[in-house]
Simulated scan of single mutants.
Amino acid sequence: MDQLNHTWTQSFLLAGFPAPSTLRPLAFSGTLCIYLLTLAGNLFIIVLVQADAGLSTPMYFFISVLSFLELWYVSTTAPTLLRTWLRGRSPIPAAVCFTQLYVFHSLGMTECYLLGVMALDRYLAVCRPLHYHALMSRKERLWLAGATWVAGFSAALAPASLTASLPLCFREVAHYFCDLAPLMRLACVDTGWNARVHGTVIGVATGCNFEFILGLYGGILRAILKLPSAGSRAKAFSTCSSHVTVVALFFGSAFMVYVGPPGSRSKGTDMRIALVYALLTPFLNPIIYTLRNKEVKEAVRRVTQRIRAMLKGP
C-alpha cells in the first residue's frame, strides 16, 4: 500500500516512441500538422451541417456528432504524443494519467455505440424509407446521440477504476499515453482477474456493437440487391460506403489492440496500432465523409455564395 501511495503522489513517465533525437523534430511537426488538420476538418463538418439546411438530415446530424466526439478523442492523446516527441520520456501526474485513461476509453466506447446508431440510421433509410423521417425525428436523434455518450462513459468506469486501484511498483509507462495494458504491466500483483473484467466490458462494447452493425448491413445488402435499377443500387451503396470504411478502420485497429490478454503483443506494436485509431482515424473521418460527396460539395457552394453575398452587402 505504501508503494501505491508513493506512486500516486509522484508521477508516471511516458516512454513514448524510441526515436533518434534528429528525427524527433520531424515527427513532432508531422504529428502537429495531422492534429491541427484533424481539428480543422471535424470543425468544418460541424459548422457546415449547422450552417446549411440541405444537410439537416439524420445522417448528417450523426456525422456532426461523430466529428464533435473526434475533436475530444484526438485531443485526449495527441498533446501527450507531441510532448513525448519534444522531451522524450515525459512525466505525467498520476491523477492526470488515470483521468486520461478514463476519458480515452469513455470516448472510444462512445464511438463504438455511435457507429452502431449510424448503422441503424442507414438501415432505416434504405429498408424503411417511407417511415425513415418519422422513426428518426429530431427527438429520437437527440435521444440516441445522448444514449451513446451515457453508455460509453458508464462502460469505461469499471476498467478505469479497477486499473487505478492496482498496487503499482513501477513508474515508466511503455506507451505515449496512459492505456490499460501498459498501466497493468506496472502492477505488483497478478492482473488476470482485472484483464478478464476489462475483456468482458470492452468486448461487450466493441464486439456486440460490431455484430449489431454487421446484422444491420446484412439487411441493407439484401434490400439494395432487390432494387430495380443499377443506378438506385449504386446510390444506396454510396450512402453506406463512408460509414463502412470508418467502421473497418476503427474496429479493425481496436480489435488488434484490445482482443487478447494484455502483454500478448510487443510494446511497440501496441503503440503503432494505437496511432491508427487514436490519431489517424479521427484525421481520416472528415475526409472519408466529404470526399466525392455531392451533397457536401453543394452545401459548401451554397454557404460560400451566402457569405459572398453578405460581404458584398445590399
Rank of each mutant, 00 (worst) to 15 (best):
Val103His: 10
Lys139Cys: 07
Thr22Phe: 14
Glu172Val: 08
Leu26Ile: 14
Arg138Tyr: 06
Asn209His: 08
Leu71Val: 00
Leu36Gln: 04
Thr80Glu: 13
Asp2Pro: 00
Cys240Thr: 10
Tyr102Phe: 11
Glu172Phe: 02
Arg196Gln: 12
Pro282Lys: 05
Val201Ser: 01
Asp190Ser: 13
Gly218Met: 06
Ala125Arg: 10
Val150Asp: 08
Ser238Ala: 15
Ser67Gly: 10
Ile307Thr: 05
Val259Pro: 01
Leu186Glu: 11
Leu221Gln: 08
Ser229Leu: 03
Lys267Thr: 14
Leu279Trp: 12
Cys127His: 09
Ala205Met: 14
Ser11Ala: 06
Ser266Asp: 14
Leu183His: 03
Phe98Arg: 08
Leu291Val: 10
Pro79Gly: 02
Gln10Val: 04
Gly313Thr: 02
Leu69Asp: 05
Leu227Asp: 01
Leu130Thr: 12
Phe28Tyr: 11
Leu186Gly: 07
Lys267Val: 15
Arg306Gly: 00
Ser56His: 15
Leu13Asp: 11
Ala151Ser: 13
Pro18Lys: 06
Gly252Cys: 07
Ser165Val: 01
Thr200Glu: 06
Gln50Glu: 10
Arg301His: 15
Val247Ala: 10
Thr31Ile: 00
Trp149Glu: 05
Arg272Tyr: 10
Thr76Ile: 08
Phe153Leu: 14
Glu111His: 04
Ile273Glu: 04
Val246Thr: 13
Arg87Leu: 09
Ala254Asp: 04
Val126Phe: 00
Lys294Cys: 08
Leu130Glu: 12
Gly252Glu: 03
Cys33Trp: 14
Ala299Pro: 03
Thr269Gly: 00
Ala134Trp: 11
Ile220Cys: 09
Pro93Leu: 02
Ala164Met: 06
Ser137His: 05
Pro182Ala: 06
Phe61Asp: 06
Leu37Val: 07
Val276Pro: 00
Thr110Gly: 02
Ala278Tyr: 11
Val247Met: 02
Trp149His: 14
Leu135Asn: 04
Leu180Gly: 05
Leu166Ala: 04
Ile287Lys: 06
Thr206Gly: 07
Leu157Tyr: 15
Ser253Lys: 05
Arg185Glu: 13
Leu114Val: 01
Tyr60Leu: 05
Arg306Ser: 08
Met256Gly: 10
Leu279Val: 15
His175Ser: 11
Tyr258Asn: 08
Ala195His: 05
Ser238Asp: 12
Arg128His: 14
Phe212Lys: 13
Arg122Lys: 12
Val201Met: 05
Phe237Asp: 08
Ala158Ile: 13
Leu14Gln: 06
Arg83Leu: 11
Ala160Met: 05
Leu37Glu: 00
Leu186Arg: 13
Val244Asn: 04
Trp143Glu: 15
Asp52Lys: 01
Ala309Tyr: 12
Lys294Tyr: 12
Leu124Ile: 07
Val276Gln: 01
Thr281Ala: 14
Ala78Ile: 08
Ala27Ser: 08
Ala195Cys: 00
Thr290Cys: 13
Ala205Pro: 01
Ser266Ile: 03
Trp149Val: 10
Thr191Gln: 13
Thr99Gln: 11
Arg265Gln: 14
Leu43Gly: 07
Ser229Tyr: 02
Cys97Asn: 03
Ala155Ile: 10
Glu298Met: 15
Val47Tyr: 09
Gly207Asn: 10
Ser137Met: 08
Glu298Cys: 12
Gly16Thr: 03
Ile307Asp: 00
Pro282Ile: 11
Phe237Ile: 08
Trp149Tyr: 15
Ile213Leu: 10
Val65Ile: 14
Gln3Tyr: 05
Gly203Ile: 01
Leu186Met: 09
Leu291Thr: 10
Phe68Glu: 06
Ala94Phe: 09
